[in-house]
Design a protein around this nucleic acid. Structure first.
Lengths: 224, 224
DNA sequence: GACACTTTACTTGTATGGAAGTATGGAATA
DNA sequence: TATTCCATACTTCCATACAAGTAAAGTGTC
């Protein structure tokens, strides 16, 4: 925890607007291709256009929005190739992380706890809670490997995949995801690095079969 | 090539300022911890503060600058942990890419050509040219694997490592780097996936020994 | 001389006005 | 009816002015 976050100085208005829109986009509240208006949002929250504009610039840097000069700002569509490359990167990195954890004897209680949360969320049908726990499960593995910074660096890539999941989770089987998570954790607990790597790669390759189906179901939300 | 790029519309001023500063930071022209003034740069290039300010916001999103409200904007110091995690990610990803290329029979002429460029740059001592060719060598491998998008996604991480290399290349042995590149290419040409992966990992682990030395030589430029 | 306080200059943050460019709808014309 | 032209409203971009906060220099006091 850095000093900046310890000293409770409220973030700038522009930053708050950015965070607010960022979350709404990730959660699928603002849909791909939708229009964003500086003046409209500014009036909506009682600010001038400038901080809203700067929030848009940040969103564009995040790859979540597209500012077209003199035309308008739009929620970025989900790039199929971007999702595929993000998936490939995650598979490569998390496979290595799994190998590091398997031989280390690190504490895996956090991962096991998330499995219980996912079971609950699956029963109650709370999609948002399930996705959040899914994220924390993978994050816990990175922490077990002592690589918290790696997880932060993947944040940008994960955000694109999370948008996809918020579209897909209503359709696809969460039980299968839980089973895959359980396979990963079992292999880690047994200290079987090769099995853990295989389980991670199998899990993350699941998206290769899901992506075409989701893209076909929502063609307007995707590009490339 | 998309229509957008065909119609040669000049980028916005803020974007140009951002690109200019981005390049100067990566090349080590603007050193870590140095101060950036909105008004100063604005006067320097004959613009108002606003576009410069928006360029700063983009740089902060890139992780290259830090805007401290009511205090000033500074070139971000090189985070040791960020470099380490970027290195780990590159090792994992490029190892997978090497395995994909080794079995594919893809054209490797581009990689071989870069080796010649690096030999030349090593002789003439042109550090910037060497680093640029080094980048293109690795990029060529990603292209040979049919994963251009992956290389783009790693851009953010590479920029931090490139800042480091512009500090280190004046010190460290470029011939060793070339030998490592040659080992990678040889393994790929022989179709030996395992050897290629090993060569890639060995090459990228070189930084693990270089980083502490560079950080010790320039303690003011690093953090964490 | 050392210390506490005040002032002053300087920083980024926000508001507002206008400039440049785009898209849309309607009117005039063939 | 179809097409071209144009006026109008809208968008983002940039310039300017002001507000809020920080830091450092200066000043007075002990």
């Amino acid at each position: 925890m850095s000093q900046v976050t310890m000293i409770a100085r409220p973030a700038s208005t522009a930053q708050q607007v950015h965070d607010w829109l960022h979350q709404r986009i990730i959660q699928g509240d603002l849909l791909p291709g939708a229009r964003l208006s500086e003046t409209e949002i500014a009036e909506q929250i009682g600010l001038s256009r400038q901080p809203v504009r700067e929030a848009f610039i940040r969103l564009a840097s995040d790859g979540l929005a597209e500012v077209r000069p003199q035309r308008g700002t739009y929620i970025g569509k989900i790039s199929v190739s971007a999702v595929l490359s993000a998936r490939l990167i995650r598979e490569a990195v998390e496979s290595d992380l799994a190998a590091m954890v398997a031989g280390s004897g690190a504490d895996l209680a956090a991962m096991r706890a998330e499995l219980d949360v996912q079971d609950q969320a699956n029963i109650t049908g709370d999609v948002a809670a399930f996705i959040a726990s899914d994220d924390r499960f993978h994050c816990a593995m990175a922490l077990a490997a002592g690589q918290a910074a790696v997880w932060n660096d993947l944040e940008r890539l994960k955000s694109q995949m999370n948008r996809l999941r918020h579209l897909s989770m209503r359709v696809f089987d969460r039980s299968a995801t839980i089973a895959q998570h359980r396979a990963i954790l079992t292999a880690l607990e047994q200290g079987d690095g090769d099995a853990a790597q295989t389980a991670v790669r199998t899990h993350l390759r699941q998206m290769l079969t899901e992506l075409p189906q989701i893209a076909a179901a929502h063609p307007d939300y995707f590009t490339e």
